[in-house]
Design a protein around this nucleic acid. Sequence first.
DNA 1: ACCTGAACACCGTTCAAGT
DNA 2: ACCTGAACACCGTTCAAGT
Lengths: 181, 181
Amino acid sequence: MPSNRPDVAPEVKRQEIRSAARSLFFSEGFDKTSVARIARAAGVTPNTLYWYYAGKEQLFAAVVEELTALFFMGLENRDPQEPVRETLAWVIEAMDAAQPLIVTLHEKARTSDAIAAVHERFHTEVATLIGERLRARGVDEARMPAIIHIVSFSVEGLLMHELAPAERQAVIDEMAARLFV
Amino acid sequence: MPSNRPDVAPEVKRQEIRSAARSLFFSEGFDKTSVARIARAAGVTPNTLYWYYAGKEQLFAAVVEELTALFFMGLENRDPQEPVRETLAWVIEAMDAAQPLIVTLHEKARTSDAIAAVHERFHTEVATLIGERLRARGVDEARMPAIIHIVSFSVEGLLMHELAPAERQAVIDEMAARLFV
DNA sequence: ACCTGAACACCGTTCAAGT
DNA sequence: ACCTGAACACCGTTCAAGT
């Protein structure tokens, strides 16, 4: 057995660690996932993980960053003309699986700079996209920042609380009807 | 030095532990507050704490329960006729100090039954109160559940994200103008 | 540059023993 | 019923040593 494995490219191993972490964070949550468990799932020892990532929180930040990049790619590829309620429904569906991560994101953003930065960037990008939709529909420019907050808070709320599908849809409809006008 | 202190009434000591926990949860956050530190602040040993509370999470649930009871007392004592924006501003202000606890509440609600119950109860009571205000203003009954969700999600959002006072006020105004009609 | 075995300080919780 | 000292299993992280 080799004591180290330089046969595997470092970028690949970074990815393996990140994937193992994502999978476990999803299924078990951040707190209940130990660094040892992530390392085992990635086929390395715990201390090797620290060569690739500065710590558990930075690894979490990297996972979130990867997911948000994917999310924005999907969102930007959608037709900007589509009805608001359809876009919102897609957003909720796309982020639904990440529910436990979103809660953790807010928790850790309070104490970790790395995570606060990811969180901040996400809100900024979402705000820009909602802003474009509002502007296209002729919403009063001065009121837009407040409306953007209400929309993104409501989306976050939908993701953080278990609602029945019909209730969820009703919230989306009400947002489309009352806020995007 | 007495090995135990039956001189202090058990209800008092329970309260001492709860107060110490609340204070530390506020200033340090749930994760960074160790049981040992709570015990020290309350003047007991860690294992004594376990005689009064089943664990750290149950203690957290008790703290949240105490705070929500206070919050609802304050809220119910307000004039139901007052403008919506004033009530909302009061709500935000009253809960602002509890910001870190609110994030933790959502995090732990996913895995702890005790905390999920407190969280659930809070949302139900808030929904009832918002519902009364909406009904008084003649809002369409069928649309009320969705609007209630948007309002409570937005309040939660305001509490979980640092907004400048003016932005915060703008969000409140927009809610009053667009949702309570 | 990359990886390991072994250790470190700390955590929430438990338990046998006391009064 | 109430409280303690001492221990338990586990945690994230570090470090000296290897290749």
